[in-house]
């Protein structure tokens, strides 16, 4: 799929305005801090939730990421976007959380976790096939490694370029491209193994209904 389709619709402030906000927040301006939180919280939470798949954990990680960001706001370099810097912190906290969780529970299997809600739009009309396809895709995404999952979500959902992803994930651009390539192929393999069976079921049901 070519990039540029439906994306997160959060308003992105201009760099100059963002720089001013950060400057004011550094000077303990509470309103500026609040505006920074309001501007970035939903996107950060969306990314983190896709990484950990648990509402409570995602909210805690999100909070920790903001607190760490505010605590070290003095070290922020305006060379980067605030959102990129914040996502970097959020991703690090995520990885620490996943490591701790893996240490406690062994290998992580996100597909075994209860989902926090139904991913279908409330009140929207969605065919059974489309709904099932979404389930299969997210279930396959959950089976990927953390960096692979992160690259897919950042690339498709948050519209980050490979260069921006490299900053967030603190990896070389070539490594990021490699993660993205492997993630797509792994996703295809996982989906191929299940969709044939699923499609056959749909065909049989459609035939029986017809």
């Amino acid at each position: 799929m070519a990039r540029g389709m439906v994306r997160e619709t959060a308003v992105t402030p201009s760099r100059e305005y963002e720089r001013q906000l950060v400057g004011r927040a550094q000077a303990d301006d509470r309103l500026a801090s609040r505006e920074l939180v309001e501007l970035h919280k939903d996107r950060l939470f969306s990314f983190i939730w896709r990484m950990v798949r648990n509402h409570h954990d995602a909210e805690e990680i999100c909070q920790e990421a903001f607190l760490k960001a505010f605590a070290s706001l003095g070290t922020f370099s305006s060379e980067y976007r605030f959102s990129t810097w914040l996502f970097t912190i959020g991703y690090r906290v995520c990885l620490n959380h996943l490591r701790r969780k893996r240490a406690l529970t062994g290998e992580l299997d996100f597909t075994a976790l209860p989902h926090d809600g139904d991913s279908a739009l409330p009140g929207s009309v969605e065919s059974e096939e489309a709904g099932r396809l979404k389930e299969l895709v997210w279930s396959a995404v959950d089976r990927l490694s953390a960096p692979q999952r992160a690259t897919l979500v950042l690339f498709y959902r948050h519209e980050l370029s490979c260069h921006e992803m490299a900053q967030v994930l603190e990896l070389p651009v070539a490594t990021v491209k490699s993660h993205l390539h492997r993630a797509r192929n792994r996703l295809r393999e996982l989906l191929e193994s299940v969709t044939e069976h699923e499609l056959q079921e749909f065909r049989n049901r459609a035939g029986a209904a017809g």
Partner: peptide, 10 residues
Amino acid sequence: LMEVSGHVIA
């Protein structure tokens, strides 16, 4: 499959 999964994620 790659296109549709990208679309779902996006």
